[in-house]
Amino acid sequence: MSTTDWPLWEVFVRSRRGLSHTHAGSLHAPDAELALRNARDLYTRRGEGVSIWVVPAAAITASSPDEKDPFFEPAADKPYRHPTFYEIPEGVKHL
């Protein structure tokens, strides 16, 4: 038996209040409690965070890169979703 029996965890850190958690890296731990503590020691030892999530790496569902085009391209041709799409006469405020 070896650390293979310690599953891989992905670590997400909120660097300060008001920001969302972002992926910081991964680590091995036998369970969630120790994963959280290891993450605290490893990824926030220079004061990089105020909150941590750990997620078993196995629990992550990811999109497939092979399907990159059909999955994401349809979103690229809908500029009307973005505010810059609309022309507003000069001088109109609070819009």
Partner: peptide, 22 residues
């Protein structure tokens, strides 16, 4: 390392995956 793995198996029903299961 073995002790911690054994403890996890006992107390969390062996949480996690092996990292292979994404």
């Amino acid at each position: 390392r073995e002790a911690a793995a054994a403890y996890a198996a006992k107390h969390t029903g062996g949480t996690g995956g092996t990292g292979e299961a994404g």
